[in-house]
Design a protein around this nucleic acid. Structure first.
Lengths: 325, 325
DNA sequence: CCAGGGCCTGACAACGTTGTCAGATCCTCG
DNA sequence: CGAGGATCTGACAACGTTGTCAGGCCCTGG
């Protein structure tokens, strides 16, 4: 900048004014400055600028579990759109479900003085963010609630969606429902399971805990577990799969066996139409979830001082039949 | 930092030394500093730090077309892993295939003084990056070559893969091959098309340009175009679809009609096993592409001064049969 | 006993930018 | 004709940090 100023024969302050489109600069001087900028290939240092002018790095941090996962990629895409509307860049970090890594990454994002944080939490305790939030870095949590921290939260209606879905199973006469899930350590899974229990309880059907199977991480395992449940005496007449990775394995196994058991899944698929065995799913709008969170964050960044808010994004029952009937 | 120094009764420089684990600090003083840091909730300002110490913002920029697209999400995931190994954060921007936007975003990333750039180019001319590269911000292009700029490039073997794929069609006796593509304005599409032409030419089968259909952006259009081609006199006996969005529509339409035409696709699918109509695809390792590019970038950041390199990631023919036979 | 080196600390300037303020010029209006 | 405002410009300090350097202490070895 000093070089540009020297070249244009003006002060650095005038250069600063020109590159920031500040008012009150003679057109002729501005021309000279612009020429010098072009000749010297000058580019304003955004870091120095936001250091000096206090806040506004025009960057927000997004912390998710894993960028390559389509769910999080969709979130990232929707957040990027909203950020772009606010001329803001996106710093993305993946916690890989590791609370220690999450904490370190969040600290790092704060050290980079992001204007705000969007977090899909992995850990249980986010009190370490309290000081940052107090110091003016707003944080919005999405998909899962924050632990030990009062903050804005945008969640899916996991419980309500699961309840509505399982109710259709119940109404179709099913009482023995196999429930397939990833891990109860994840909030969304617990909520979906709770919703399923509520729907069964409402029908007076106590849930059979031997039909609830945990720790299913991939379609292969899901297929195996479905097989095991079907092979035991008094097998389930329907399955509720708590995410689409599991649904995939389940549908394959049911198809392979020509089973008539019903299947209900949480999470929709892109390629649902192509599956050999259509089934009803509890769908939701991932982009709406992410957009709501991002928009809330930008309201906070703009200075909205109101009480922390909790938004619930509705789910949608997409009926593709219950093939087991 | 001055507050911490005051609280601990030391100079700011000593605080700096402690928070950077510099040697030659009395353990007792370090203790006092650490205590003050904890009490005051001090967090080092990474911006100021990298401003003062010259380079190394420990951030790289990734410019892609669209984050929500699984191809780019996979790239982002692999890049994030490599970046994480180098304790580097990832600033991600989406050009949405708009060259003007791409240029603006790249300039913005440079203004943020990223240590390096990873670019899936949208535009044709990247000479505006020359000054940045000269000034020490290395750039690596991936999936598509840079325009008007000598720079490292990591590409898929689009042409070779298409040639190998179409050769299998030719060997199976097909001479009339319908070719379905998105847009010839995209480099990868042109290469794949060229590979297909080469394979057909090698068999002495001149390509019939009426069978090459352009501008197919979604599965629905793909399905319609397949129908049109099949309905015309002397229809193709095989199709080569240049990306998986198109393959999806094509396979649906072929399935719907019970057609015996063969189908070959570029791009593999996650759910390929579940498709009702298996077909051979030209697959590739997106993660390998991205990792190679990221690793090359970090070598440049570390100071590797060698000539710009061009890497070619091989494709892999995954034979799932040619159902048309 | 002193030279020389390792250990430890702090004052100061600087990174590239912009907020603040003072000053200069010009115009307008009473 | 002068006061007051609008327009324009630059000197200076400051943002939060770290590189440089000077200086102090203590030890070791000749």
């Amino acid at each position: 900048m000093v070089d540009v100023a020297a070249r244009a024969g003006v002060s650095v302050k005038t250069v600063s004014r020109v590159v920031n489109n500040a008012p009150y600069v003679q057109p002729e001087l501005a021309q000279r400055v612009l020429a010098a900028v072009a000749e010297l290939g000058f580019r304003r240092n955004h870091l120095a600028s936001s250091l000096r002018s206090g806040q506004a790095t025009a960057t927000i941090g997004l912390l998710i579990e894993e960028i390559a996962n389509p769910f999080y990629a969709t979130i990232a895409g929707a957040v990027a759109e909203v950020a772009s509307d606010h001329d803001t860049m996106l710093l993305i970090a993946s916690s890989e479900e590791d609370p220690a890594r999450e904490q370190q990454l969040l600290r790092d994002l704060c050290a980079r003085r992001v204007d705000g944080l969007l977090v899909v939490p992995a850990g249980e305790d986010h009190s370490f963010l309290q000081s940052e939030v107090d110091l003016g870095t707003p944080a919005v949590f999405l998909d899962r609630p924050a632990g030990e921290l009062r903050a804005d939260t945008v969640l899916l209606d996991n419980r309500g969606g699961a309840r509505a879905g399982v109710r259709t199973l119940v109404e179709a006469g099913h009482r023995r429902v196999g429930i397939l899930l990833d891990s109860t350590s994840v909030y969304t899974m617990r909520e979906r399971l709770a919703g399923a229990r509520e729907a069964l309880a409402a029908a007076g059907a106590a849930i059979d805990d031997r039909l609830v199977r945990d720790g299913i991480r991939d379609p292969g395992t899901a297929a195996r577990v479905v097989g095991e449940l079907l092979d035991q005496p008094d097998p389930p007449t329907a399955f509720f799969s708590l995410n689409n990775r599991i649904s995939l394995g389940a549908v394959e196994e049911l198809h392979r066996r020509g089973s008539t058991a019903a299947l209900l899944g949480f999470d929709d698929f892109d390629l649902a139409r192509l599956l050999p065995y259509p089934f009803t799913v509890v769908a939701y709008d991932t982009r709406a979830l992410a957009r709501a969170a991002a928009e809330l964050l930008f309201r906070r960044i703009a200075g909205d001082p109101s009480e922390p808010r909790s938004l619930l994004i509705p789910t949608d029952l997409v009926e593709r039949g219950l093939p087991g009937r």
